[in-house]
């Protein structure tokens, strides 16, 4: 028995020594990242909405076919993407809808992330009802009348309140605060993803049923389902500063690109190309519609667009 105990002690000591030797050998490298694939690799995050997937698909196609890079993509939540960007796990975010807290933390304080300029697309978030409903009840577009129509928006999930259809949990949203602060008889219901939200909207539209949804432009579906924005109290600079007290509409956001600081400095042609990457809302919608509406794979959609719009993307290539 005593031998066993000695053995046990020995194991414990060995384990402790192992950990010590591991830690004693010095400070760890901090900027460690998944360097799978060597130098000519660019890592991009793929946000979950189709518009942003279009950016990445086109950028990836050009980087791989024209500049000889290998592009790795990873889907993750927006906030997580910021953190990964800071750590160097990814090199760039091509479409950001505004994360003031993260921007302050990573760009200004830690300086691990740098701004990458405009994407060229202006985004806007708002509350929308279908046009066929707004035509019948024109006064619904004023938020003050929403409580009057709350009953029309009721569903199994929202109980006795009107439903405000939401998308993916990681989207930028102040809706719960807005509802509370404007004393609206509404309840948010998260579809869980853009795709689920679109499915729900399409179904409502087919049956010409009333609905109220969190929605945004640019969005390819806007070409297929006509929607009208509800006028919330006007957006003023700083009215959304305190997340709990928001009672105003969403701003119009010029969508931004962000890069990892090291990548921006040492990323060579890839970094230069991504900085130059800039297109219009229509161009993005064109690709997004191919992916989501026509069920093409992002690769195929990008290839098609690149073939047809050579003039546009030639300008993004680094000057030799």
């Amino acid at each position: 028995m005593r031998t066993v105990r000695t053995f046990r002690t020995a194991v414990a000591v060995a384990g402790a020594l192992g950990v010590l030797s591991l830690t004693a050998c010095g400070a760890a490298e901090t900027g460690k990242s998944n360097e799978a694939g060597g130098d000519k690799t660019v890592k991009l995050t793929v946000p979950s909405w189709v518009g942003a997937q279009a950016n990445v698909a086109v950028a990836k196609h050009i980087l791989e076919k024209e500049l000889g890079y290998k592009v790795k993509t990873q889907q993750m939540g927006e906030v997580l993407a910021w953190d990964a960007l800071s750590k160097g796990d990814i090199d760039g975010i091509l479409e950001d809808w505004g994360h003031p807290k993260e921007e302050k933390q990573y760009v200004e304080t830690k300086k691990t992330v740098v701004k990458g300029g405009d994407l060229g697309v202006t985004g806007h978030i708002g509350w929308y009802v279908p046009k066929y409903f707004a035509d019948k009840h024109p006064d619904v577009t004023d938020w003050k009348n929403l409580n009057k129509y709350a009953e029309e928006f009721r569903t199994a999930e929202s109980g006795d309140k009107g439903e405000l259809l939401e998308g993916s949990p990681d989207y930028v949203t102040n809706d719960d605060a807005i509802i509370a602060n404007l004393k609206l008889n509404l309840k948010t219901n998260y579809a869980g993803s853009e795709a689920a939200q679109i499915t729900a909207i399409k179904k409502y539209a087919k049956e010409k049923k009333p609905f109220l949804t969190y929605w945004w432009t640019p969005q390819w579906l806007n070409a297929q389902v006509d929607m009208v924005e509800i006028k919330l109290p006007e957006y003023k600079e700083g009215c959304d500063a305190d997340p709990k007290k928001v009672a105003c509409a969403y701003p119009h956001t010029p969508l931004q690109k962000f890069f990892n600081a090291d990548f921006a400095k040492e990323g060579g042609e890839a970094a230069e190309f991504l900085k130059n990457f800039k297109w219009t809302t229509e161009q993005q919608n064109e690709v997004a519609l191919m992916i989501a509406g026509e069920k093409m794979s992002p690769e195929a959609a990008a290839e098609k667009w690149v073939k047809e719009n050579e003039a546009t993307w030639k300008a993004w290539l680094p000057k030799k």
């Binding site: 591991l22 830690t23 010095g26 400070a27 760890a28 901090t30 460690k32 990242s33 998944n34």
Partner: peptide, 13 residues
Amino acid sequence: FLYFLLHLSNTAT
């Protein structure tokens, strides 16, 4: 982090 957790996470990666 420098002397412990980062070692762990780097080793894992």
